[in-house]
Write a protein that binds this DNA or RNA. Structure first.
Length: 305
DNA sequence: AACCCACCCAACCGCGAGGAG
DNA sequence: ACTCCTCGCGGTTGGGTGGGT
């Protein structure tokens, strides 16, 4: 038995959206929101479209602060690094690139970036990416190379029957607040300590502030030191275990409050940014990887695993 | 000018996850 | 515990476009 269709296919329009449809959808959502139900939204908005189609159109094209156009070198590097670490988890990668959608990144990767990397492999001297690549890049390049030389390039990397990618390490899936990527001015990074030169190359943002060295290079990473650990309330602890995370550090009142609002039972330790910086710079071990996020109000979180 | 081909990207499809009843 | 429903994700498709011949 087949799956029930999500809408009456006979009565829905398919294909490209007209400007009129865009306007209708945009106006409706701006006035009423999605109402938490995409399936009924087209009817409410007076559109002859499938709910899924509306959702996609809104998320990928109509919602505010969507960034169109060329990707910057920094964005390239972040995509490459995240792909090397987590594979084709486009939504997670998109969450680290404000204004970019998963579809955008996926398309960009499939049509351009993959080939760009391939070009690097063949002509390393022409590479624009950092001169000293992280170890994870060699495996990535190998994957790209394999996929491009396979009979079916478009499916080689993602094929579920023959996965060519194995994540180098477990990855911390961002908690919901980070998906509100419009509020973040900087991309997060996720690197191993060995990647410090690469890290330094792409991190020209707030992380500099937490580094002891003045040249922007960053060799400080959170250690396993028990003193640095704290409990994450409610379901958070198991969630962090599931995600392979050891810990979160939040700083700033709003971000901590968000976590409390999300159902945390125990008080969240509200580290000040300076305290976080201190914790990082005083760490003796460099054995962990971390993910750093910060929003416009200098609040955010540091996650490490 | 006409045709071919490769490329790009918006949109579709099907599946899994998770919440509600 | 189970079913149903919706959402969100990743893979894939196909129409539009531009360059080459």
């Amino acid at each position: 038995m087949g799956r029930a269709p999500c809408c009456d296919k006979a009565n829905v329009k398919k294909g490209p959206w007209s400007p009129e449809e865009d306007t209708k959808l945009k106006d409706y959502i701006e006035k009423h929101g999605t109402g938490g139900n995409w399936i009924s939204l087209p009817q409410r908005a007076g559109l002859k479209r499938c709910g899924k189609s509306c959702r996609l159109r809104w998320l990928n094209y109509l919602r505010p602060n969507i960034k169109h156009g060329d990707f910057s070198d920094d964005e390239d590097r972040i995509i490459c690094s995240l792909y090397a670490n987590i594979g084709s988890r486009w939504s997670i990668i998109a969450a680290q690139l404000p204004g970019r959608t998963d579809n955008d990144i996926k398309n960009y990767w499939n049509t351009k970036l993959k080939k760009k990397l391939m070009g690097m492999m063949i002509h390393p001297s022409q590479a624009k990416l950092p001169h000293q690549l992280p170890a994870s890049f060699s495996s990535l390049l190998h994957q790209v190379s394999s996929s491009l030389s396979s009979p079916s390039p478009s499916t080689a990397i993602s094929s579920s029957s023959a996965p060519s990618y194995t994540p180098a390490r477990s990855f911390a899936e961002p908690v919901p607040f980070s998906s509100n990527n419009n509020s973040f001015t900087t991309a997060a990074s996720i690197f191993s300590p060995q990647d410090s030169s690469f890290l330094a190359a792409i991190q020209n943002y707030q992380m500099k502030d937490s580094c002891s060295s003045s040249d922007g290079s960053c060799n400080n990473h959170i250690s396993h030191d028990k003193d640095l650990e704290y409990e994450y309330g409610g379901g958070g602890a198991s969630a962090t275990e599931q995600m392979g995370l050891q810990n979160y550090f939040y700083y700033g009142v709003e971000e901590s409050q968000k976590l409390l609002d999300g159902g945390g039972e125990n008080p969240i330790i509200d580290y000040g940014l300076e305290e976080i910086k201190q914790l990082i710079s005083s760490s003796s071990s460099c054995s962990n990887n971390f993910l750093f996020e910060e929003n416009k109000t200098s609040e955010g979180r540091i996650m490490y695993y």
